[in-house]
Design a binder for these strands. Structure first.
Lengths: 141, 141
DNA sequence: TTGTAATAGTTGCTTGTGCAAACAATTATA
DNA sequence: TATAATTGTTTGCACAAGCAACTATTACAA
């Protein structure tokens, strides 16, 4: 049975976990009409109004093109607005965006509760480990 | 700085890790002309010739529709063939598919080496933890 | 001061995966 | 037997994210 070997492979297990937990997150953040990543982007802007796209990308560890599109869709929803400042584009939350803040945090909180109760043990210990692992893997070889 | 909180969120960290390690895996398996998931599917069939699509899905923890498409593309490459047996479809490796076996395992081995040297410490310990976490999260609430 | 390099963002395209509904084959029920 | 329920696979569609190539702006060097 190959599965014995598959589960020792970080590629395999990290992707599986990612799929499962993404679905949980989609369900929770649907309560505020956002995809998980959009919700994280909103939180980032709400925490630092007028942040640049580049900084957002660095916070979320996502490529610039992905940020462009996420912002585009959040502007379309009337939750963000942007202002061109030279070559950079600064992002602001609209009033409607700010109104959503507490609901986003609620969803996020519910999500963490939901998986923490299921994992009971090390809760965010695991998460920190993954963060560390990512940092090490990202170093250019 | 919100990032402090983001990295305690398993959704956030699991997805980041998944993106990073998927890219590593893509690079390695490109050596045998496969995407990582196709490579895993090939290994699954090579280990049990004539396996059904459903079983493959269970091994890889992927949805039936995804399996259908992966097989479709591997058939197009002449690496797999399928035979309808009642309502199930049984999957076989072709000669060309079997010839690839050792190269796939080589790529897989290189991948694991590459990330294990970068993580030095717990290597597949972490992977097993992720597997366990996935199992717990998957239980219907 | 002009020409080159670096930086920030955008656009077109591709890929992997899922969901929901459809379909086909098989088994169970009445 | 005929109809219903179940099971396995397929199809159409959607979405998140990346890459590579491009544009626009700023910085630097000769």
């Amino acid at each position: 049975m190959l599965e014995i070997y598959f589960k020792e492979c970080l590629y395999f297990t990290a992707n599986r976990l990612s799929r499962i937990i993404s679905k949980m997150a989609e369900n929770e953040f649907a309560a505020c009409g956002l995809t998980p990543t959009s919700a994280f982007l909103m939180m980032t802007v709400l925490e630092k109004d007028g942040i640049s796209q580049k900084e957002i990308g660095q916070s979320l560890h996502l490529q610039p093109s992905t940020i462009t599109r996420l912002i585009e869709s959040l502007e379309a929803k009337g939750l963000l607005s942007s202002r061109q400042e030279g070559r950079k584009s600064l992002i602001f939350a609209t009033d409607r965006g700010r109104e959503l803040e507490s609901r986003i945090h609620d969803s996020w909180h519910r999500l963490r509760q939901r998986y923490n109760t299921r994992l009971d043990s090390q809760d965010d210990e695991l998460s920190l480990q993954l963060y560390e692992a990512s940092n090490r893997l990202e170093q250019t070889e």
